[in-house]
Nucleic acid binder design. Structure first.
Lengths: 232, 232
DNA sequence: GCAAAAGTGTTAAAGCTACACCCATGT
DNA sequence: ACATGGGTGTAGCTTTAACACTTTTGC
């Protein structure tokens, strides 16, 4: 086998599975296509990788175009390369998962792209193999959030434990005992008390925490065990 | 953003991180290149994706060419797409992890490709970003084997618990209490007693088990907790 | 004072670790 | 019979799950 023998070049795209959380349910940012092919149908946000651009940079460029946000938490999910996945021309798509704070995005930009936040439970059928991408992204989010502190990416910088609790219930689509959850989270020592309280609450105001960035960096590679087994 | 706007086509390759286990240590099947570029240096086995071939099929084709084996356990790891990762021409590489039974491969074929099994601990420096690929593959193997029953792919169909135990010690590069390990494995009910014993042993012959395929399929998505925390 | 949400405590069961002991086999 | 490796048992500790209770706040 020699290198550069049959240099068949292929189209390479990235598609982004963009998760958000509005305090109640987990949402996806989806695009209603006003361009061919599959005009009028729903799809993930995507685009082609440029000649002089790393894969992840491509995904971040596309995310920036859509949301106006930089420094988004992005993780490569998997590449989808079935020969006939795109009917127009063979295209390899590198799928990226993105977690963003739903309140931060640029609304005009999102509207301009014909994009909408849709609850996972109301997800319409998407074009091509995008449904598979979403399924996998959700599976991975569940997998990862059970063991690593990534849920925070979906929340504001300052957040309460009840908020985090609701997020986890949304991610796993099931009830979690709030008291055990709280103790488990606090036992990681990953949260810093900001001294502030959630003034929005009509009842007892919850303590607002912030992620301890130093410990976060140290512990990122250690397992959590947030979920009662079995998770999946 | 309209589809098919700037159709820049790129080279797409697959590289395979091939793990094997010889009963003592975890090994990689590496190629000493007798072709350009980087002739004489070590690399992973790889090749370009063909026009009419799914990504995973490409990896399997390459694995078949090298080892003569079909039905190999293969898992897509990640795509590597840095602009300058390949100095000759920009190439996206989709990395695949493969777990094979080291005794099954076709020796002639491996020799013909100038490939050698090398213990992870003696791994030479590899070309391009192949070192990164190996690091990630190992991390993923550790991650996954702690929670899912995939170690079996590296063993013969019938294997003993002591064999499995040695495999796990090799994967995690640390001692594991053999008695606790044994109990943990058996408690999953994933192993079927074949009624046979390991006749090779010079001392007490170990019971040979086989993976219970039905339970395997059912349980594949459930977490194991094989390793004492923290694993990583 | 009451309802609702937040925070803290308790207890029994389960799981894990670190051991000790016995069994089978070839020399 | 003994050295070696394989199989099973157990005590003490830690973690978990499933609960109850108290505190804060707005009305």
């Amino acid at each position: 086998m020699t290198h550069y023998e049959h240099p068949t070049r292929l189209l390479v795209a990235t598609d982004c599975i963009i998760f958000g959380f509005d305090g109640e349910s987990l949402k996806l940012l989806l695009v209603k296509r006003n361009f061919a092919p599959e005009r009028g149908k729903w799809s993930l946000m995507g685009g082609f990788v440029h000649e002089n651009e790393d894969l992840e940079d491509g995904a971040k460029r596309i995310l920036y175009e859509l949301t106006g946000l930089e420094n988004i938490y992005v993780e490569q999910l998997k590449s989808f390369g079935e020969v006939k996945r795109d009917p127009v021309e063979r295209t390899i798509s590198v799928a990226f998962s993105a977690l963003i704070n739903i309140h931060d995005h640029d609304e005009d930009s999102v509207k301009a792209h014909n994009a909408v936040w849709i609850s996972l439970k109301d997800k319409p059928k998407l074009i091509f193999d995008h449904d598979k991408m979403v399924d996998l992204a959700l599976e991975q989010l569940r997998y990862k959030a059970a063991l690593h502190p990534i849920g925070f990416e979906l929340l504001p910088e300052k957040f309460s434990i009840p908020q985090l609790h609701k997020l986890y219930e949304a991610i796993y689509d099931r009830e979690l005992d709030r008291r055990n959850f709280s103790r488990k989270i606090l036992s990681t020592k990953l949260l810093m008390d900001t001294g502030e309280k959630n003034e929005q609450s009509a009842t007892k105001k919850a303590i607002l925490y912030r992620l301890d960035k130093e410990r976060y960096a140290d512990k990122f590679h250690s397992f959590w065990h947030f979920m009662p087994d079995p998770v999946m």
